[in-house]
């Protein structure tokens, strides 16, 4: 605080409270809607306080699913999302860390060329090459498989950069000492570099898990079989039901379930999340 201006402090808190309200109210309204019986949500104004159907609604969507969405139980979609998010996260971390290791610690022909090929992926998000990528996955017969959901999203320039950046800060003496003691490239990587990278991997885990969980367009393209639907893209089927009103209480229960896992990760690992976010963008 530079100078004492009480009215300014009050104003600051007021503005922040408005900000918090803007962030929290939509979630609150969603949560409230998910705890009421369907009839209450047929006409505005809808209640602002939770109802008594919390357990029933959530049990219904988790176990049986909403019939108009083809009746896929949300439990199945949650599991699919989890499998996809974790495969993407671990896949990205694994292939990026070894690629960065090769680029930083080895001298070999075409090193810069390989680096640039990886770099290019930054410029080609799925959204700009939808059809041909879909064709590749279809030709490899990976539609409606977990591999099809995750493998094409595993390549990552940002994770490779992050590890490269981190390896460059590891003191040279460490590698020198390891080599004098007779450690080969495998031993050095597993016994020294991997343990040192633990914090970076954890920070990256948070960011990548959210990225993987929140994928929308890709699962929409590669899954036609309902048993492979992920929850984030599955909601859309419940909202856009043809010729009738969406079953709002169940849709909102599904929405809450869809946002819960990544929100828990962010709030639970806040420090790592902020670190990961800042590092990835550097």
């Amino acid at each position: 605080m530079i100078e004492n201006r009480p009215w300014l402090a009050v104003l600051s808190h007021l503005v922040l409270l408005v900000g918090v309200a803007v962030i929290v109210l939509p979630i609150w309204i969603t949560f409230v809607a998910s705890t009421h019986p369907g009839e209450v949500l047929m006409q505005a104004p809808i209640p602002m306080w939770p109802g008594d159907k919390f357990l029933e609604n959530y049990a219904l969507v988790l176990g049986a699913g909403v019939e108009d969405a083809g009746g896929v139980p949300v439990g199945v979609m949650l599991l699919n999302s989890l499998i996809m998010a974790l495969s993407i996260t671990f896949g990205k971390i694994a292939i990026s860390i070894i690629a960065a290791y090769a680029i930083v610690y080895f001298e070999f022909p075409f090193r810069m060329f390989c680096f640039w090929i990886i770099f290019i992926t930054l410029m080609l998000p799925v959204e700009v090459r939808i059809l041909p990528t879909f064709a590749v996955v279809a030709n490899l017969e990976m539609l409606n498989t977990y591999a099809g959901l995750s493998v094409p999203l595993i390549a990552s320039a940002t994770a490779t950069f992050l590890f490269r950046q981190f390896f460059l800060t590891v003191p040279e003496e460490l590698c020198e000492a390891a080599r004098i003691d007779g450690a080969g490239p495998f031993k050095f990587f597993i016994d020294i570099l991997l343990p040192l990278s633990r914090t970076n991997m954890a920070a990256l885990f948070v960011i990548l898990f959210i990225y993987g969980w929140n994928q929308y367009l890709w699962p929409l393209l590669v899954t036609t079989d309902e048993s492979y639907y992920t929850i984030v893209m599955g909601i859309q089927r419940m909202v856009n039901v043809s010729e009738q009103l969406p079953v709002w209480n169940l849709v909102m229960a599904t929405t809450i379930l869809a946002m819960l896992p990544p929100v828990i990760v962010v709030v639970g690992m806040q420090k790592l999340f902020v670190k990961g976010l800042v590092e990835v963008e550097k």
Binding site: Y105, F108, T121, L124, I154
Partner: peptide, 27 residues
């Protein structure tokens, strides 16, 4: 890259292979 480096005929390519393969096939 580092001053202290490893030399290996195939290892760096093997390490880069998964990343490059996915990049080329899907990107």
């Amino acid at each position: 890259h580092k001053k202290v480096i490893f030399r290996h005929r195939w290892l760096p390519y093997a390490l880069l292979f998964p990343q490059l393969a996915i990049t080329i096939v899907f990107f």
